[in-house]
Structure formats: structure tokens, C-alpha cells
Simulated assay, not measured.
Amino acid sequence: MAGLPDAAWTDIDLDRPGAADELRRLAAELKVAPQVVADALDGVQRPRVTRHHGHLFVHVHVLSLAQEAGEDHDSRLRTAPVSALVFPDHLVTVHRASQFPMDRVVEHWEEDIEAGSRDVAALLHGLLDEVVDGHADLLQDLEDQAEALEDDLFGDRGRAGGMQQVTYRLRKEVVQTRRAVLPMRDVVAALLRSEDDGFVVPRSLQGRYQDLADLAQHDAERTGGLREIVNSIFETNLSLQDARRNIVMKKLAGWAAVIAVPTAVTGWFGQNIPFPGFSSPWGLAASTTLVVLGTLALYLVLRRRDWI
């Protein structure tokens, strides 16, 4: 157990053997409802804040992006659930250290001590600030990837089918990110609402919590804009593929028309009936001239119309 001078902190690392039992024992001492403990151990629920008698339950998602995915269309987004039981003078965090180490949060708390912030609200702010900053960094990374896809959209890479898979993967990651980022607005807003029971943000920290709420709101707006950009890239790439396919079909149809001229001429002169020039040198010259001139004329017409 550690923390700031005016607040205690207990960290439950679910990677440790027996951590779940440790949390249940602590919850029994602090009179926490079993359902709250089950929610903390579950870790799959939506980010939220719930008020209970004498304490808060805060659940958030820490997001990160893996370097590589199993397949081109698999999402690289990794979600690490973090729960916190917030008492007037005690903070209990529940997480997996392999997914979210608390080192940077502790550094943040040490800075708060130097700045004079010494209560549990400072502990909770340090935790949420790291989570929201991580969301902002992730969104910046996704935006950079979206810009790179836009640059490749009209290049050679845009002609390959692999770009469609990469765009689909990015769209999936944006949707998953949005599900975790949007509720953070409500989480911070709920903490800012002062109530008689449970957690209250002290006046000295209200400005910092308001900045956190503004950043969470900004992140939520960024997810909406990013989703529109990725959807636009996805749909534009499909449209470009259809346009390129139409161009190929048009050129094939044009060359088929050009080839039809010598086919028609040779078919006519290949009839097994007498006709002008049949079995004579000038008949051969006439057929050859018709093939050459007819093919050349049709080629020039189609070329002028940009069909071939």
C-alpha cells in the first residue's frame, strides 16, 4: 500500500497469482458490493463511472496499437481494462501489469506531490490523465496512417487489392477506438459533478479535471472526423477500382472491334463461292488493302475517342 501523503493506494495486479482473492478480501474490508468486484475482475464492460455508498467505481480502457497484425485485415488495437475503486482517502486500482504498467502513473503522482496535490483526487487524475493522453497518442498514429493511405490512393499501391484490406483494417481499428474514447467524456463529466456522497473534486483540482474533460471531448471529436476520413478512403478506393475496371473493359472492347475488321474481311474473301477477284492476284491485293485500311481507320477513330 502506497500513495500520496493524504491518500493511500492499493494496486491489484491480476497477473499475480491470488490477486483475485486479494481483491475480494480487500473489498470485504472496505464494504464493497460483490457485483463491483465482479465488474473489476471482468474487465469487458464499457468505460463508465458508477456511484456507490461511500465510494466510486471507475472503469476505463487503455489503448495501444500492435506493430503487426496476424492478417492484413486483423485489427492491431490492444485494449487493457483498468478499474479503480475510489474512496475519500483510498484508491484501489485493478489491472494487469503486462498490459498497463503503472510506472508512468506513479511518476505523474510524484509530480503532483511536488506541486502540492496530496489527496485521492490527485491520484485519480494522474491515472485518468495517462489514459486520455494514451488515447490522444493513438489517434495521432491512426491519423498519420490515414494520411499515408490518402497519399497512396492515386498511386500504384492504390491499384493493388492489398490497400483495400489495409483500409478495412484501419476502419475497424477506428471503430474500436471510438467505442473506448467516446465514453471518456461521460466518465470525466461524472467526476466533475459534485455530490454529497462519495467522490468530490476539490476546488484546487477542478481546473485540471476540466482540462481533462476538454481533452476527452477533443479526442471524441477526432474519432468522428477520423471515421469519416477512413470511410471516404474506403469508398474512394472502391470507386477507383470500378473506374479502372471500366477502363480495362473499354480498351478490351476497342481492341475486339479493331480485330473484327480483318476477321470480317478474311471471312468474306474466304467464302467458297465465286466473287469479284476470286482466285486472282488483284483479289488478294483488294482484301489486303481492305484489312489494312479498315483496321487503321477504326483504330484511329477509337484512339481519338480514348477507347484504346
Rank of each mutant, 00 (worst) to 15 (best):
E147K: 12
F57E: 14
L284T: 11
H218M: 08
W307S: 09
V261W: 04
V131A: 13
A115Y: 06
L149I: 03
P202V: 12
S75P: 03
G134P: 06
L127H: 03
V92D: 03
L14A: 04
R78Q: 11
L296E: 10
E29V: 13
I273Y: 14
T177F: 06
L85P: 05
L138N: 01
A136I: 02
H52V: 04
L30Q: 12
E68I: 15
I12S: 01
L139V: 05
L63P: 01
V131H: 06
W255A: 06
Q271H: 10
V131G: 02
G294D: 08
L139K: 07
L296Q: 12
R25G: 09
G126T: 07
K250V: 10
G54T: 13
L26M: 15
A286Y: 10
D133G: 02
L41P: 03
L123H: 10
Q140I: 05
D112Y: 07
W9G: 04
A121G: 13
L215S: 11
A115I: 07
V292P: 01
A122S: 13
D119E: 14
H55W: 13
V32M: 13
L123R: 02
A180L: 05
E150W: 01
G294Q: 14
I247E: 15
R222I: 08
G161R: 10
D11R: 15
R171I: 00
D6K: 12
D211P: 07
F154I: 10
L128C: 07
D119S: 15
V188S: 02
P274R: 10
M163A: 01
D74G: 07
D72A: 12
